[in-house]
Amino acid sequence: MNDHDILARIKALVEEEHQLRDATGNKETDHARLKHVEESLDQCWDLLRQRRAKIKTGEDPDEAAVRPVDEVEGYRQ
């Protein structure tokens, strides 16, 4: 997955997040899906930051890997 692919995924997740926040459907289902979308966004942003850091230090950005949700959830923005 390259930076362009990650940014496209982020855009799609943000759109879904907005739709879920505006939805009036099943609150439990919406809440669970929203949590999953937020976690996926955190993972995508982390992966993008990893790739950019590797490029900056002359490393191969393709060596960056998606980290577990419990690792990226606690990061400060």
Rank of each mutant, 00 (worst) to 15 (best):
V66Y: 15
K27R: 14
R51K: 15
K11V: 05
E15F: 07
L13Q: 03
N2W: 03
Q43K: 12
D22C: 08
L34F: 02
E16M: 02
C44A: 14
Q50N: 05
I6G: 02
E28C: 00
L7D: 05
Q77N: 12
Q43S: 08
R21A: 08
E15G: 07
R21E: 13
E17C: 07
R52P: 01
C44D: 05
D42H: 04
K54T: 00
V69Y: 11
E28W: 09
A53M: 14
V72M: 05
E38S: 03
R51W: 03
A64K: 01
R51G: 03
G74H: 07
Q43N: 08
R33G: 01
D22S: 15
K11M: 00
V14F: 02
N2K: 06
Q50A: 04
E28A: 15
K35N: 10
A32I: 12
Q19R: 15
K35D: 09
I6P: 01
E63C: 12
A32Q: 10
A65C: 12
L7E: 10
D30T: 14
R52D: 08
K54W: 05
E38A: 05
D3V: 05
R67S: 09
M1W: 05
D46C: 08
E63H: 10
R33Q: 10
V66D: 00
H36R: 12
L7V: 10
E71C: 05
D70F: 15
P68I: 00
H4A: 13
D42K: 08
V69H: 08
L13T: 02
D22W: 06
L7C: 06
K35G: 11
D70E: 15
K35M: 13
Q50P: 06
R67V: 04
P61T: 05
R21S: 08
T57P: 00
T29W: 13
D70K: 10
E17L: 09
P68W: 09
K27F: 13
A23H: 11
E63A: 13
V69M: 10
Q19V: 04
E39N: 14
L48G: 03
D46V: 02
D46A: 06
A23G: 11
A32E: 12
L34S: 04
Q77K: 14
N26A: 13
T57D: 11
A8D: 07
Q77D: 15
E28G: 01
A65S: 13
Q43T: 03
T29G: 11
R9F: 03
K27C: 00
L34N: 05
E16T: 02
E71M: 13
L13A: 04
L48E: 02
L13E: 02
R51H: 01
V72K: 07
E15A: 14
M1F: 06
D70M: 14
K56T: 10
E28V: 12
N2A: 06
E63V: 10
R76Y: 11
R9Y: 04
E59D: 14
A8L: 07
L41A: 04
Q19W: 06
